[in-house]
């Protein structure tokens, strides 16, 4: 049984132009200890997917249209706020893109880590403190006893992300969702954080869902990759297969635009055009307006995900020709 199993998830947002689907009919699985990469441009629905798993979407304007999110055999979408709170932390931890703004500026990092333990485990102050010190040491923070009383603004960006990781992992979650964890960091720090995450995965035997627009990060981290475009999965494959035989024009575009880790600013420069407006989506394939491979049939209907090879799915009707190239 997989740890996390998302089926036909659809997330709707109320806008001035009526409801639009930010995430549409998403299905995927994540096994224990596995690292799943979700790639796509900002606006592709990857963060919405993550937040809907956590039950953190602002409602309204967001609403779950249909689908299920099974975590350890239970459908989280049926959970109330109180039950969901017991999942956040001990079940699923989450870290975010901006370690600058994701930590509360007016509380010490010790306080912010310890309160998580207190809320979920109800242990005494001394025990909380020990746990926090251990965890800070584990994520590579020197002199953790002293750092405990520091405020976020006294730490560097990399240190803050380490603190965020410590905070997310302090209750030993089975799954860590990392939403663009390195985007805001310097390149050398990015590398350290990614390595730290992989080490922690092995040590804590947790699964990681890493959300990024950076194919380089995926290559480094992921066992398996989901490529999202305009709220839909366009390709899904083990990491090797994806790089060996990308079977969707969008994935190819992403791979072509891989910069070195040193420079992710010019991402996607080889794909012309922008994401379609979610309230006025193309009738057929959503990538069709930007696609160099488009044919008349692409407009006719939404192409389904089909198996290219075992474990490897693509939503392009010309995936065979793509593979031949």
């Amino acid at each position: 049984m997989s740890l996390l199993s998302v089926r036909n998830l659809q997330v709707l947002f109320a806008t001035e132009n009526g409801e639009v689907a930010a995430v549409d009919d998403i299905t995927f699985d994540l096994a224990e200890g596995e690292v799943l990469g979700i790639v796509g441009e900002s606006g592709s629905g990857k963060s919405v997917t993550a937040l809907s798993i956590m039950g953190l979407l602002p409602r309204p304007p967001a609403r779950i249209g249909r689908g299920s999110v099974m975590f350890e055999g239970e459908n989280l979408l049926t959970y109330g706020e109180r039950a969901m709170r017991r999942i956040r932390g001990p079940g699923i931890g989450m870290i975010f893109q901006e370690p600058m703004t994701s930590l509360n500026p007016v509380f010490t990092i010790g306080d912010q880590i310890m309160e998580t333990v207190r809320v979920h485990e109800g242990v005494g102050k001394a025990a909380q403190r020990d746990r926090a010190i251990q965890m800070l040491a584990r994520v590579g923070i020197a002199l953790p006893e002293r750092r405990l009383d520091d405020y976020p603004h006294q730490l560097s960006g990399g240190m803050r992300q380490r603190v965020m990781i410590a905070m997310a992992l302090i209750c030993r979650p089975k799954l860590l969702i990392a939403d663009e964890p390195t985007t805001a960091l310097d390149v050398t720090i990015q590398q350290q954080i990614l390595e730290l995450l992989l080490d922690l995965r092995d040590e804590f035997r947790m699964a990681i869902m890493i959300i990024t627009h950076n194919m380089g990060v995926v290559a480094e981290m992921a066992d398996r990759v989901i490529v999202m475009y305009a709220g839909k999965i366009v390709e899904q494959a083990p990491i090797g297969a994806l790089f060996r035989q990308p079977s969707h024009p969008y994935t190819r575009g992403l791979l072509d635009s891989i910069p070195s880790l040193a420079d992710d600013r010019e991402r996607l420069k080889t794909i012309p055009g922008t994401l379609p407006n979610p309230s006025a989506l193309p009738p057929g394939c959503r990538f069709e307006p930007r696609c160099a491979w488009r044919v008349a049939a692409c407009i006719a209907s939404v192409p389904p995900l089909v198996a290219v090879e075992p474990e490897h799915h693509s939503a392009c009707i010309r995936h065979g020709e793509l593979a031949a190239r």
């Binding site: 900002s42 606006g43 990857k46 937040l51 967001a62």
Partner: peptide
């Protein structure tokens, strides 16, 4: 960024 798809409009 949190609303991802929606605010494009």
């Amino acid at each position: 960024a949190m609303l991802d798809g929606a605010p494009q409009i």
